[in-house]
Design a protein around this nucleic acid. Sequence first.
RNA 1: GCGGACGUGGCGGAACGGUAGACGCUGGGGACUUAAAAUCCUCUUCCCUCGAAAAGGGAGUGCGGGUUCAAAUCCCGCCGUCCGCACCA
Length: 853
Amino acid sequence: MTGAARFDPAVADIRWQRRWDDERCFIADTDSAKPKSYVLEMFPYPSGRIHMGHVRNYTMGDVLARYRRMQGFEVLHPMGWDAFGMPAENAAMERGVHPDGWTRSNIAAMRDQLKRLGFALDWSREIATCDPEYYGHEQALFLDLYDAGLVYRKESEVNWDPVDQTVLANEQVIDGKGWRSGAQVERRKLSQWFLKITDFADELLDGLGALDDWPDKVKLMQENWIGRSDGLRFRFEAAVQGASRGYPWIKAALSQSPRIDVFTTRPDTIFGASFVAVAPDHPLARAVAAENPDAAAFIAECKAGGTSAADIETQEKRGFLTGVEAVHPLDRDWRLPVWIANFVLMDYGSGAIFGVPAHDQRDFEFATRHDLPIRRVVARPDQDADTPIGDEAEPGEGVIVNSRFLDGLSVDEAKQAVIRRAQEEGWGSRKKAYRLRDWGVSRQRYWGTPIPMIHCSSCGPVPVPRDQLPVLLPQEVTFDTPGNPLDRNDAWRTTICPKCSGEARRETDTFDTFVDSSWYFIRFASQPVDRPFDKADAEKWLPVDQYIGGVEHAILHLLYARFWTKALKRIGRLDIDEPFKGLFTQGMVTHETYRGNDGRWIGPDEVRADENGQLIDAAGAPVERGRVEKMSKSKRNTVDPEPIVARHGADAVRWFMLSDSPPERDLEWSEAGIEGAARFVQRVWRLAAGCGEADGQDPDLERKAQRTIAAVGEAIEGLQFNKAVAQLYELVSAIEKAKPSATRTQAVRTVVKLAAPMAPHLAEECWEVIGGEGLAVDQKWPEFDPAMLVEDEVTLAVQVNGKLRDTLTAPRGLDRAEAEALALSSEKVQRQLAGAAPRKVIVVPDRLVNIVA
RNA sequence: GCGGACGUGGCGGAACGGUAGACGCUGGGGACUUAAAAUCCUCUUCCCUCGAAAAGGGAGUGCGGGUUCAAAUCCCGCCGUCCGCACCA
């Protein structure tokens, strides 16, 4: 039997995609009797066109979804759109389009692109977070959390652009300046809505222990992010420095804050304290600033620059001496100066610390700058109490010195001793502190889910009654001035208080888009019209068995989704502990960068090589090859998948995405790579098209095929697609070399099935040409006979002193003495030994003999 | 600043502590062809011995130590690169 000379993806792809659609292959049946498998990739932001990163991500998920389906699972593999967010507003400002229209046309375009790649998706469950049918339910869930006491309002800092008079996202702050205005950004306080994720800190932390199918690195990152640490919370009594007596701000400060609460994870170093420092937001700092213009000026300086952790923590450590003193709790005569310091965070612990310069690097830098004492209180075995501290702090273990009743104790013993004493004497207690902060969900933006609250001047904030949901985003908005258009939309903003019926105004902030993505996987599983999800249906599918996405979401999105799930469980809405049973974080797609003489970036499609191999641009000017970097618009090193798919077909692109690079690492896009993949697709096609019926057995090929079935299955289970690809190359080569036989014909069928999850259109075309029944997509995943995997003969590696000297073929199952005798009979071994008797011989059965001379 | 990862031929990468470099790409040589494309065969870590081939020897997994009969793999210390840091998604 012979088919067409070439596999033509332009025809085949569309044909089979239509067929799968007609047969409703990928519609998930919630009532199926089969075991379920929920495969999910992180849904995309509809930026306009899909990029190679999407193709890689969705190809991986697709391979797994199709593989599970062939294994007999009822598979849920849905797709949707994370459709709210800033880019739509930016487009509105720059191009005068409406965010809604812009987003919806992007979705339409990207949906077509995804369909062109032949993913096994259940499009009947498609959702977009900007649909009121989605975000209305989200508003209802938020109100459920509000009713459960998990929502509250507090002041929080935002980046404020004083020229544009608008709030900026961290990414809009560049080197401390606004991205459009270029003005120095300030930190400003706004009253905002928060979710009590810290209530779940222990659950979120302890839950990580059961996530066996998550990468260790992600669990570790979440653990560090939650940052639970044990320590001592205690208070310093505030006093007045002699010379400062009579300054008005001291009195104000003391009346405001007669005690200063501090938290420390190192109570053992309490005798090494040389100062106390409070955050610029601390009540004591504010009280001082109210009376002292210099302090106010210092605090204002601290407010300059962005709110991001990297911005704040890389600032130089600076302080302002208040004149207030703190009384050391273990010695009433010992006074510590109290500073306002820019490196103390109000959000962690109690917003105040005691500084131990000898054993904390930040305190060390601060003390050095302000000429404060640096006293050693921990000594390593090679040090004593008088060893001076070098040019950096010593945070490590040791024995306590210079610390009165603690001297001679270990760090740990001293911690316990101090905590015990504090509790006995009543000035402090053991306390856990978390780095995790509550989740601020308010955004001062239009294109997001409206927060369903109403502000009434007499009743305060009042939830929108359920029967008034969804609170719709108004369509009539303008973007001609910076800031949130909802604030200027009086018609929308003005409403009636549900409680007192007085005039009130709507909350004009919208949700952080992470709220939208914190429950979409539940809505995929169950989408009734009248409520967010049906509990029983959602629980049939959840948890997601395999979740796949970028490692950039390792902390925030994944933590928020876990929190949301646990919160729904607490309020009785969903009996699921963890949303994602398995997690995989894939690497990025990268590409070489190119620059012209003038330093401007040049896109790969404008670069070609001239006859001498010199790279030139479209105008013939020389181009310099830069480093390989993540594809990004700014570096112009993106490759648009669409023309590549049009040229090589979906399967070649999919195949290339899976080849070579391990999926967790970066993949470098290359022309040669995609061409190699396209060649392989044709090679498989030729193999199938040229394969006829034949008789006879081929045991070697049979064994190879069986091994490949085992290896490819194992590789896909472990999401090691590059290994699955390599295995298929080997089997295809072996079949090509083999003479016609019944075994060979069978092996071709095996190849088609093994390749089906990765190159599904090719598989259908091949399946048809070799006369397979039904569709390739519906075939059962092939089974293998474990007995067939074992070879009768093994290759023994023979080493002398750990160096390979010979390899010998031996029957399997040789005992130690036989293996040793065989190894010693080797001429090469004898030459190495040169007559010397072996001192020791190590035998690893069926693998290796190492002779130690 | 804090946190996380990664580092193996010309390139992407394989390798339960046990034969380093599977498989792919690139490149060289050859076959088929009037020619090209396509396809197929073959070689391709580096250095040395050798006229050549066969064969042999040495070195080698970022750098420096250590554990072990045996280390790409485990431990300690460096160096380099990348990613995240709460309002990008």
